[in-house]
Write a protein that binds this DNA or RNA. Structure first.
Length: 457
RNA sequence: GUGAUUGUAGCUCAGUUGGUUAGAGCGCCGGAUUGUGGUUCCGGAGGUCGCGGGUUCGAGCCCCGUCUUUCACCCCA
């Protein structure tokens, strides 16, 4: 006999946790539906070749690979073993667990291109796996809720993502959040203007850390990565953004226009941002909390346009949501020129945030509403039709299965947080009138079955 | 992947420089109360001290390995 354990970074969810998790899932699903997205699901397993090379080198290392079935070592030669894991892996593992929902979606779109009506809007709420070292808010198995639109480059889609983010967090009662938005074209433009064209990737990784490690260390890192003193010096205007008070989006846009006027790419990115925000305003969103952050980068290498990130304020948990536009993700699967944009909500981190801020409503997805307590077998025969009528009236009802002490059955109701109890003994059997007990107040009254249903319904 | 950190009852934690039979609170089960709970009182069950090896007359405590937890880096939901 050995004690069972869970693999690193995975968790069980009991009824109490599932009640809260389903509240999050339901809230997000509701919003996705309202915005016209349709659900799909894809397999947990993908061919490894579908996944590799889409997330950058770092991402590839975090993929869970699945050993081939049967004798996976059959075709492996001494030479293969000597050539290292990089060469060996594709020979012994042809499948892997999905790392996110966006790449499998791109694969789905390409495979179904002839039957899809474009633009195609889908949502997907499924677990993903990453072979990361677990930490606070970081797990090896976690759920993402993605909504993506492909087949249009309309900025209305970006605007709708901003709107959905607001709706989801408002409905979850996470009021205090920061939605940051930026555009990869602006980052590319910055690289151009400072005289390091095409290097926005390395540039981004460094400046993304600005609010975490500060200006000095960012500059040091850029130096180490081979940026010249001259280019670093011309980066100076960047540090004027967001350092003081959070400035108005329009002010930031003006500043960017001045600084980056020499770059066509940057001008385009700025114009896209501007239009997106304008559409959001026209929609009539009150209390919009969009913040333009020119230092927001995000690591995922496939983004080409707008990028989004949402953090909950007042808690030390990383981003709870992120996304962006990708112009050529389907190109890797032989279908170039299809633009898409999407957003991903991290259920597990949202859960952690809500738990820490105590935001779950007490009655979210309540369980059984009434427990029937029969004192003997005769009482059961009276109870069963009552059970049926309660359930027909859509009231969650159950009967205690054993004939035990009343104390024990009431304890059961308390343990399960069941607010009402119906007691049925010889008196109730004779009169047909039931005893309804409120478990919170302790008060008890005689009711007919109809009255019972009316009170609980 | 790099560097730290954690593990004792279902839960939260004590456990002396290595020394007999490892404790507490809460929870759980039973009773006081054979048709009425969340209060009280009484009683009871429950531990291969994460796992494997080593040092020692003797290890929960020391050493090595391993798994797990938490954290920083990296990256990200």
């Amino acid at each position: 006999m050995q004690k069972p354990t869970l693999p690193k970074g995975t968790r069980d969810f009991g009824p109490e946790q599932m009640r809260k998790r389903l509240f999050i899932f339901d809230t997000i699903r509701q919003t996705f539906r309202r915005f016209g997205f349709q659900p799909i699901e894809t397999p947990s397993l993908e061919n490894l070749s579908t996944l590799t090379g889409k997330y950058g080198e770092e991402g590839d290392q975090l993929l869970f690979k699945i050993l081939n079935s049967g004798d996976f070592a059959a075709g492996v030669t001494e030479l293969d073993l000597a050539s290292g894991s990089k060469k060996l892996t594709p020979k012994i593992a042809e499948k892997g667990l999905r790392y996110d929902l966006t790449v499998p979606f791109a694969r789905y779109v390409v495979m179904n291109r002839n039957s899809l009506t474009l633009p195609f809007k889908r949502y997907q709420m499924q677990p993903v796996w990453r072979a990361d070292r677990p930490q606070k808010g970081r797990y090896r198995e976690f759920y993402q809720c993605d909504a993506d639109v492909v087949g249009t480059d309309s900025l209305l889609c970006e605007a709708e993502i901003v709107l959905m983010i607001h709706e989801v967090f408002r409905n979850l009662t996470i009021q205090d959040f920061t939605l940051k938005i930026n555009n990869r074209k602006i980052l590319a433009g910055i690289a151009e203007v400072i005289g390091a064209p095409g290097q926005e990737g390395t540039l981004s990784v460094a400046i993304d850390k600005l609010d975490k490690i500060g200006k000095e260390k960012v500059l040091n890192e850029l130096q180490e990565r081979g940026f010249s003193d001259e280019t670093i010096a011309s980066l100076e205007p960047l540090f004027l953004f967001g350092v003081s008070e959070p400035t108005e989006p329009n002010q930031i846009l003006d500043q960017l226009k001045n600084w980056l006027s020499a770059s066509d790419t940057a001008r385009q990115g700025i114009a896209e941002l501007e239009e997106t925000l304008q559409l959001v305003n026209q929609y009539g969103l009150s209390d919009s909390t969009v913040e333009i952050d020119p230092t927001l980068a995000r690591g995922l290498s496939y983004y080409t346009g707008a990028i989004f990130e949402v953090k909950a304020n007042g808690v030390s948990i990383g981003s709870v949501s992120g996304g962006g536009r990708y112009d050529n993700l389907t190109g890797a699967f032989g279908m170039p020129g299809l633009s898409g944009v999407g957003i991903s909500f991290g259920v597990d981190r949202i859960y952690d945030v809500m738990e820490e801020l105590n935001l779950f409503p007490a009655d979210a997805g309540q369980g059984t509403q009434v427990l029937i307590i029969p004192f003997d077998t005769e009482a059961r025969s009276v109870a069963l039709p009552v059970l049926r009528q309660l359930r027909t009236a859509a009231i969650a009802a159950e009967m205690y299965p054993d004939l035990s002490k009343v104390k024990k059955m009431l304890d059961y109701a308390n343990a399960k947080n069941i607010p009402f109890v119906v007691l049925i003994g010889s008196a109730e059997v004779q009169t047909g009138v039931l005893s309804l007990k409120n478990m919170l107040t302790g008060e008890q009254l005689k009711v007919t079955t109809d009255e019972l249903i009316q009170r609980l319904g």
